[in-house]
Amino acid sequence: MNRRDSPILPPGLSDEAGVARRLAAKATGRGRLAATTFAQYRTEAERLFWYARQTGTPISAWTLDEFSTYIAFLQAPAPWAGRARSVYARTVSRVR
Rank of each mutant, 00 (worst) to 15 (best):
N2R: 13
N2I: 03
R3A: 09
R3H: 08
D5M: 00
S6N: 03
L9A: 08
L9E: 09
L9C: 00
P10H: 01
P10E: 06
G12I: 01
L13K: 08
L13N: 08
E16D: 06
R22D: 08
A25M: 07
K26A: 12
A27C: 04
T28E: 13
G29N: 06
G31A: 09
G31W: 04
G31Q: 10
R32T: 06
L33K: 05
L33F: 03
A34Y: 05
A34V: 05
T36R: 03
T37G: 04
A39R: 10
A39G: 14
Q40V: 10
Q40R: 14
Y41R: 12
T43Y: 14
T43W: 13
T43H: 15
T43S: 14
T43L: 13
A45Y: 04
A45E: 11
A45L: 10
A45R: 08
R47C: 11
W50F: 09
Y51P: 11
R53E: 15
T57Q: 14
T57I: 15
I59T: 12
S60I: 01
S60D: 15
S60R: 15
W62T: 07
W62N: 07
T63S: 15
L64K: 00
L64R: 01
D65C: 03
F67M: 09
S68T: 03
Y70P: 05
I71L: 06
A72Q: 04
F73W: 14
A76K: 12
A76R: 13
A76S: 13
P77V: 04
P77D: 10
A78E: 14
W80D: 14
A81N: 08
R83Q: 11
R83P: 07
A84I: 04
R85D: 12
S86A: 08
S86C: 06
Y88V: 09
A89V: 02
T91K: 06
T91D: 14
V92N: 09
V92E: 15
S93D: 15
R94S: 13
R96D: 12
